[in-house]
Amino acid sequence: MIAVENLAKRFVLRNQGGAVIPVMEGASLSVAPGECVALVGASGVGKSTLMRMIYGNYTAQAGRIMVGDVDVACAPPRAILELRRHTLGYVSQFLRVVPRVPTVEVVAEPLLALGVDDGTARARARDLLARLNIPERLWPLSPTTFSGGEQQRVNLARGFAHDYPALLLDEPTASLDATNRAVVLDLIRDAKGRGAAILGIFHDAAARAQVCDREVDVSAFAPEVAA
């Protein structure tokens, strides 16, 4: 479902003397439907960068990123938007929303964007919020003032609202208590069960051991440092 081949990434800082910072070279990995693969490696090694490239958020300098039949590395913006609506979900570490929009609408939005009717989308949103233990009295409020853990759970609810065939999870269990961590791991197992291909970053080794089938060490893709 996800197949990355020979991916290279460098940042060029044009206002800082054109400094070139190579961050990745020859990155290759694949994730099959129903499989959960963990990206591992020390902090700063490029796990999130790789994930952002797969989502089309960062450009790639070389290589291929196949998600389904779309090559994210060279697809036009429209094809990537279409892919993100239907096929490829991404739960980042940060919740980014229009201020003042109620939590239940934030979670329902990916479904509304797919044309699901309002009632069904909201029902699904309420189910997920309840499952992730967000108190019902918070549902009509904007999540911008919620605690870090609550925002993370709203973000997860939003990410799991639609049954994406491919899912990217950046630290889905960070800042969660044991109960909610278990809920998230269940959601991941459910997604695997219906055949989703999942790529995740988990600092929590125990969580990783519970849901991941394989690990990919991103430090193997670090570019050779020239002199």
Binding site: V12, N15, T59
Partner: peptide, 21 residues
């Protein structure tokens, strides 16, 4: 030109980099 989040998070042109930063 490009996807909004890509242009804002990984700008390529000097001017866009300046604007975003």
């Amino acid at each position: 030109t490009g996807l909004t989040d890509q242009v804002l998070d990984d700008p390529q042109h000097a001017y866009t980099q300046l604007l975003v930063s």
